Simulated assay, not measured.
Amino acid sequence: MTDGLNGRSVIVTGAGSGIGRAAALAFAARGDRVVVADLDTDAAAAVVKEMERAGGTAVTVAGDLGEQSVVDQVASTAVERFGGVDVLVNNAGIMDRMSAVADVSDAEWERVLRVNLTAPFLLTRAVLPHMLAAGRGAIVNTASEAGLRGSAAGAAYTASKHGVVGLTKNLAVMYRKQGIRANAICPGGTATAITVDADRTAHGPATIGPYFVNLGRMSRPEEQAAVIVFLASDAASNVNGAIIPVDDAWSAV
């Protein structure tokens, strides 16, 4: 398959499972060289082995992307091993406890915002000099249905994903003249390993629970990954600043 991606240097975060894993495998299948970044060392290594068995080229970087040292390692690995950074997929994320504002602890708020919003900012900032030097680059962020509405998650997760949407749009405007595109997908319900540690009787989960009746069908990670790969490809060369629901029309209800 030829789609303008082949041989490029790609970073995918949260690539040890779910949407990130599916995206990493899809990029590799097109001939791209992939940095598989994930908190789970064993999961990341397993994905790299899977890619290598299929003839792909990949390397893993394990660690917490909320830490600047890990972010620097991810960026430098792509540059040193693959010659630069052509595509960045900020996919890593965690759920909150569906907590309403009055029930959100400082720890829950700070951790969710750190992983879901600050980490994508840090990694984008780290790779931008390399993209600017090359005069091109594609950034694809994984936002969420919770980035489009207030009834899909708790306060912390909702705020973090609205932040991802804003970050994406700002990047698109700021760097479009430098050949860099930034877009985001907003997954609806997707069959991944992410779990929600929530007390269903608490105010937050009890309040937003009824809104999930319009969720639509559960998607496969590969369906989300297909849109990520498209947005990173030359086929989407004039798509910039787009926030695309991949949710079986949940956002349209």
Rank of each mutant, 00 (worst) to 15 (best):
R53Y: 11
V70H: 11
N90L: 12
A54P: 07
E67L: 15
K49S: 12
F82Y: 14
K49T: 14
L65D: 10
N91C: 01
D86S: 02
A92H: 09
V47M: 01
Q73Y: 08
S69Q: 15
T77S: 06
G55N: 06
D64V: 10
T60D: 02
Q68A: 15
A43T: 12
V87R: 00
A92P: 02
R81F: 01
D86P: 04
V71W: 15
G93Y: 04
F82G: 00
D64M: 12
D96E: 08
A92N: 04
D86Y: 06
R53T: 15
V59W: 07
I94N: 01
T77H: 13
A43N: 10
R97N: 08
A54L: 12
G56K: 10
M98D: 04
G55Q: 09
V70F: 13
V59K: 02
D42S: 09
G93N: 01
E80G: 09
D96L: 05
E50Y: 05
T77P: 05
E80A: 11
D86Q: 05
L39F: 11
K49I: 15
A58F: 07
V47Y: 00
A43Q: 07
T77G: 04
D86T: 07
D96Q: 08
D86K: 03
D86E: 03
Q73H: 11
A44F: 11
D40H: 11
V59N: 02
A78H: 02
A58C: 09
T60W: 06
M51V: 11
G84A: 13
A44N: 08
R53V: 12
G55L: 12
V70I: 15
E67A: 13
D72M: 11
M98R: 10
G93D: 02
S76K: 14
D96C: 07
V70W: 09
D72Q: 11
V47H: 01
S76C: 07
L88G: 03
I94T: 09
D38H: 05
M95K: 03
Q73W: 12
E52P: 05
D40G: 07
G63E: 15
G93V: 08
V87F: 00
A78D: 03
T57Y: 02
G84H: 07
V85C: 00
R53C: 05
S76H: 14
A43P: 03
I94R: 00
D72S: 14
M95A: 07
S69D: 15
G84L: 02
D38M: 05
V74E: 07
V85F: 00
V61A: 09
E80I: 10
M95P: 03
T60I: 06
T41H: 06
D72G: 10
L65M: 14
D42I: 13
A43D: 09
E67V: 15
E52N: 05
A46P: 10
M98V: 12
V71N: 10
D40R: 10
N91H: 04
L39N: 01
